Simulated assay, not measured.
Amino acid sequence: MDNREIVFVEPWKVEITSKRIDARMEAHQVLVKKIYTMVSPGTELACLSGMESWFNMPGVPGYASVSEIVEVGSEVTDYKVGDVVFHYGKHSRYEFTTTDGVFLKVPEGLELKRVPFTRMATIALTAIRVSEIELGDLVSVTGQGIVGNMAAQLAALQGAEVIGLDLANERLLTAKECGIKHCVNAGTEEPKDRIMNISNGKGVNTAIDATGVPKVAIDSLSWIGKFGEIILLGTPRGTYNTDVTEVLRSSHLFEKGCINFKGAHEWRYPVAPDTFVKHSLLRNSTIVFQLLMNESLIVDPLISHIIPYEKAPEAYEGLRNNKDLYNGVLFKW
């Protein structure tokens, strides 16, 4: 069987390769054929840059997939040929995988192009899980890419009034389509002034940073109210020099806000349900399925491109150099 893969050959070089699948499937595995795979812009561009030590080149990236099972191993009893599943699959036409981890049947009636967004939504949901967001709170979310947009939507579902911030008008327009009440262009407006106006001078209760840009997180400390919190949703990357004493004082001193700093990396929770832990990736995924089914979580405006996998090189070029127009990219297999 011939397989097609999207390969990061070297920094900023993407190729489509053909690879013969000669390996025999093991008894506990299934063979899936991809329907859609989704690009995670932040993580995959970081890998493509060559700056992520855990990703080895040449390598096949991939983050989220909806696939059809085409063969099952002799020990697999919960799945059958023809089942459509969501899993953390790579950008390839076929893939041998186990049913361990996040591997779930897609609910009947859930539109397949929406399914890969489950991964991005569960990443965003981590920020809500670790936060103290309550009904009536004011929340800012810096960065209105896919994950930031979903974090903003989920904060609103938690009962908060949400302010979305970004430098791109296109992303802010998308945020409005997704129901975000306040949208602020941080390039043409002063974020602190606008937020203080919205909050009547009190600041936000929770600031979620989805950009991963250290300066953005530090700047947001200025608009967090007393006893508020900052949630680091985007993985901080790059070098940024500042006075760390002032940063620490914002947490320590009352007059500086007594702000709590919290990390929200998705892997802080176990994959499978655990007796001693309330949340898990599987539980979060099934909750997101329901939100997508009843359209409480809106994703269609986030889909900027559905393109054949053969055009992957131009897609990554667009994601790198035309970020305002390339946001949610699905590869069709």
Rank of each mutant, 00 (worst) to 15 (best):
D2S: 12
R4A: 13
F8P: 05
E10M: 11
K13S: 00
E15K: 08
D22K: 15
A23F: 05
R24M: 14
V30P: 03
L31S: 07
L31D: 00
V32C: 11
K34L: 15
K34S: 13
S40L: 05
E44P: 05
E44N: 09
L48W: 01
M51Q: 12
S53P: 06
S53T: 15
G59N: 04
S67G: 09
S67T: 06
E68I: 01
V70Y: 07
V72P: 04
G73S: 10
E75R: 13
T77M: 12
K80V: 00
K80C: 04
K80T: 02
K80L: 02
D83K: 14
V84W: 07
V85N: 03
K90L: 12
V102T: 11
K105L: 10
E108R: 00
E111A: 15
R114V: 03
V115F: 04
P116G: 04
P116K: 06
F117S: 03
R119I: 02
R119V: 03
R129V: 14
V130L: 01
E134M: 10
L154N: 10
L154F: 09
A156Y: 08
L157P: 07
L157S: 01
V162P: 10
D166T: 02
A168K: 14
L172N: 03
L173K: 11
A175D: 01
G179W: 06
K181H: 05
V184F: 03
N185S: 06
A186G: 09
A186S: 12
P191C: 05
M196T: 13
N197W: 13
I198G: 01
S199Y: 12
G201A: 03
A207H: 12
I208Q: 04
A210F: 11
T211D: 02
V213E: 00
I224C: 07
F227R: 14
E229I: 05
I231R: 02
T235I: 13
R237V: 00
Y240P: 00
N241H: 11
D243I: 08
R249N: 09
L253E: 09
C258E: 11
I259C: 05
N260K: 14
F261T: 04
W267E: 12
V271P: 07
D274S: 14
V277M: 13
H279W: 10
L282S: 13
R283F: 08
N284E: 11
I287W: 15
N294T: 11
E295F: 14
L297A: 05
P308Q: 10
E314P: 10
Y316P: 01
L319T: 06
N321Q: 08
N321T: 03
D324K: 13
Y326I: 02
F331T: 00
F331K: 04
K332W: 06
W333H: 09
